[in-house]
């Protein structure tokens, strides 16, 4: 194995699941494999560009790949629908109330997509505002302002008295394919 191959494999091992989870939260499951695969193909070709902390760079590439992907663009809201509908099982090691965590996911699903993205980058991927700003392509200062706003909005959604948020039809009911 060459030095390049070793370096690339270790970057892959550290970041692949982050890229995978991020792509699911932005473009749904249908495209995740092809987008992850393309992201790492680009990373390999541009290995010389990869910074010592490669995750923000990789998520930024995945984000661009998603934007150029027709099927992912059509499915921007799929993940939010999934959060509302399916009650994805949360991590087992957390002792908190299941209802509270489900409420958090539903509150997340109720936010506009760009705010949802900021919150996911920070809370699920553990990026600092500076790193997350690189992913979405804005300055760290702008990111902080946007994050503050997104966080407030999340809190507002959490504080809302629980009305059962509309679940999208589960068995392929009326659904516009185009946004």
């Amino acid at each position: 194995m060459s030095e390049d191959e070793k370096r690339f494999s270790s970057i892959y091992d550290e970041s692949r699941q982050h890229v995978w989870a991020y792509v699911i939260s932005r473009g749904g499951r249908r495209v995740v494999e092809e987008v992850v695969s393309e992201t790492f193909t680009i990373a390999w070709k541009r290995l010389a560009d990869l910074p010592p902390q490669p995750l923000p760079w990789l998520l930024g590439v995945a984000r661009n790949v998603l934007r150029e992907n027709y099927r992912a663009e059509m499915r921007r809201e799929e993940f939010a629908a999934e959060l509302r509908e399916r009650a994805l099982p949360p991590q087992a090691d957390v002792a908190d109330d299941v209802a509270e965590r489900q409420a958090a996911l539903r509150a997340l699903a109720a936010l506009p997509e760009d705010e949802r993205e900021l919150l996911i980058l920070v809370s699920w991927h553990g990026l600092s505002p500076r790193e997350a700003a690189k992913v979405v392509g804005c300055s760290a200062a702008t990111f902080r302002v946007r994050l503050h706003r997104a966080r407030r909005r999340l809190q507002r959604e959490l504080d809302r008295p629980t009305d059962p948020r509309p679940v999208r039809p589960r068995v392929g009911m009326i659904r516009e394919e185009m946004p």
């Binding site: 991590q91 958090a104 699920w124």
Partner: peptide, 12 residues
């Protein structure tokens, strides 16, 4: 709260 609610399958 959001961090704790992350679906298990998205655990990086």
């Amino acid at each position: 709260l959001l961090k704790q609610a992350r679906p298990a399958e998205l655990d990086p």
